[in-house]
Design a protein around this nucleic acid. Structure first.
Lengths: 200, 200
DNA sequence: TGTATTGGATACACAAACGTATTGAACGGG
DNA sequence: CCCGTTCAATACGTTTGTGTATCCAATACA
């Protein structure tokens, strides 16, 4: 029932999906509204009926992907926290599984980070999202260390920042040269050394 | 003497300089040729007299900045290799001092990396540049370890890849929240642990 | 069943950007 | 000293992209 509202939100969702794809392929500025609509199977009429402008779409898309990401994390967390495996496996697993498509996610998030470095409003939104993301990861680290009687000599959040930074840089290298830098190789060779050093 | 050619290359240089600034501010697609010319103090006539198209400019700019970067590194290397300080100080110092403006360099290189992830030609150029960059850093590491009778249990190049990845990710965090993530803090807290572990 | 509303398509106006063609001026060579 | 060339400015045409205004169909509701 209530087909109208559902229809509306469905087209909105398809437009967002199309925007995600086209933005990943050509970047925010490189993609035209027309491109996005075409990808989603609509015309610009549908677009401007759902979004006020392209800028508004960018923000909405960021919010939507952010929400999905955090939701996905929320779903993964319990399993990772309790189940077997090491602390590192849990954290890296979360980073890898949080987004369905690593390449697309990397392109989009990098694009949005660039955008944020040039735009105060976007920066605010991004900072907040990253904070929530870190919070989840930090919580995971705390739970696992507590459960296994581990003590870290550095604040968990700083360790999380390290893992995120390394993961981002490594992913960039991997996407550029998949053959030369196997996925996760840097993380898996060096992070155990860190953990060994900071845990007691 | 020979004013004509020098004049030409001077305007070309100013256009490249303008492009660097405007690209950093608005991104490749966001910046118009007109913007660049205005910044450089010319009109589009000058631009199309020096470059065939915007795409050609992007490549030329990448080459120019790459050349300057490698040249700068070549100038810094001898000092860092012989002089005092630790291995880490040398490597991180090189990464910090190679580009005159960290923020601008990060924006541009990130932008170009995104471009490369979508464009095979750009990818080829970037891969080559990164390889030369790594080579220089690797050489530096090898020289310093040799001079101080150090042995690393991992290939120097892999260590360099680690440092570059971490540096990139950390710089991204720093630029977004300078107050929360002091410049180089992640590198300086965690890389010594790695070095301790892998050196003998 | 008729009417009002809503969502999306079509058509249109306008602005921005790219690239070209032409012009003018300065300098080099004969 | 004049002529040819070269570099950058100006002027122009064309394309692309955004946003608006209008139209049409389908569904909700009376």
């Amino acid at each position: 029932m209530e087909t109208p509202k559902r229809r509306r939100s469905a087209t909105r969702a398809r437009l967002l999906e199309g925007a995600l794809e086209v933005f990943a392929e050509r970047g925010f500025h490189g993609a035209s509204v027309e491109d996005i609509c075409e990808r989603a199977g609509f015309t610009r009429g549908a677009f401007y009926s759902n979004f006020g402008s392209k800028d508004e779409l960018v923000l909405a898309l960021f919010q939507a992907t952010t929400d999905r990401l955090l939701e996905q994390i929320g779903a993964l967390l319990p399993d990772l926290a309790n189940q077997p495996g090491s602390l590192l496996d849990a954290v890296l697993g979360l980073l890898d599984d949080a987004a369905p498509d690593q390449r697309q996610w990397h392109l989009i998030s990098t694009e949005f980070t660039l955008h944020a470095l040039r735009n105060a409003d976007a920066a605010k939104a991004l900072i907040e999202q990253r904070a929530m993301f870190r919070e989840q990861l930090t919580r995971l680290v705390e739970e696992i260390t507590a459960a296994s009687n581990l003590r870290l000599s550095v604040p968990p959040e700083q360790f999380v920042r390290l893992v995120m930074a390394l993961h981002e840089g490594a992913r960039s290298q991997y996407l550029l040269e998949p053959a030369k830098v196997p996925a996760g190789s840097l993380e898996h060779t060096f992070l155990p050394m860190i953990l060994e050093t900071i845990s007691s």
